[in-house]
Simulated assay, not measured.
Amino acid sequence: MKTLRKVLLASALCLLWGGHASADTPQKQAHAEKAAQGHRIDRSGKTRKGKASFYGRRFHGKKMANGEIMKPDSNAAASKTLPVGTVAKVTNLENNKSEVVVVKDRGPYVDGRIIDVTPKTADKLDMKEEGVAPVAVTPLKLPPKPEAESAPPDKAK
Rank of each mutant, 00 (worst) to 15 (best):
M1P: 10
M1C: 07
M1T: 13
K2C: 04
K6L: 14
K6S: 14
V7L: 13
L8R: 14
L8K: 13
L9Q: 13
A10R: 13
L13Y: 10
C14W: 03
C14A: 15
C14H: 07
C14K: 01
G18H: 15
G19T: 12
G19Q: 00
H20V: 03
H20E: 08
A21N: 07
S22R: 06
A23H: 10
A23G: 15
D24A: 09
P26G: 12
P26K: 11
P26I: 11
K28M: 11
Q29I: 07
Q29K: 14
A30L: 10
A30W: 00
H31K: 04
H31M: 14
A32T: 13
E33A: 12
A35G: 07
A36I: 07
A36Q: 15
A36F: 06
Q37E: 13
Q37Y: 02
G38P: 12
R40T: 14
I41W: 00
R43H: 07
K46Y: 04
R48S: 05
G50H: 08
G50W: 07
K51F: 12
K51N: 10
K51P: 02
S53Y: 00
F54T: 05
R58E: 10
R58M: 05
H60Q: 12
G61A: 10
K63Q: 15
K63W: 04
K63M: 14
M64Y: 02
M64C: 06
A65R: 12
A65E: 14
A65V: 07
A65I: 08
A65D: 10
N66H: 11
G67I: 03
I69R: 11
K71F: 06
P72S: 09
N75V: 07
N75W: 02
A76Y: 13
A77R: 08
A77I: 12
A77Q: 08
A78Q: 04
S79D: 05
S79N: 09
K80N: 15
L82E: 05
P83V: 06
P83M: 05
G85C: 03
N92Y: 01
E94Y: 03
N96M: 10
N96W: 01
E99L: 03
V100D: 08
V101C: 03
V102M: 06
V103E: 01
G107H: 02
Y109T: 04
V110I: 15
D111Q: 13
D111L: 04
D111H: 12
G112E: 06
R113Q: 11
I114W: 00
D116K: 00
V117P: 05
T118P: 06
P119N: 09
K120P: 00
A122P: 09
K124T: 06
K124Q: 14
L125G: 03
M127R: 04
M127A: 04
M127V: 03
E130I: 08
V132H: 06
A133H: 02
A133E: 03
P134F: 00
A136V: 01
V137M: 10
V137W: 02
T138D: 01
P143H: 06
P144Y: 09
K145C: 05
P146V: 09
P146I: 10
A148M: 03
S150N: 06
S150R: 14
A151W: 00
P153R: 08
D154A: 08
K155L: 11
K155W: 01
K155G: 00
K157L: 07
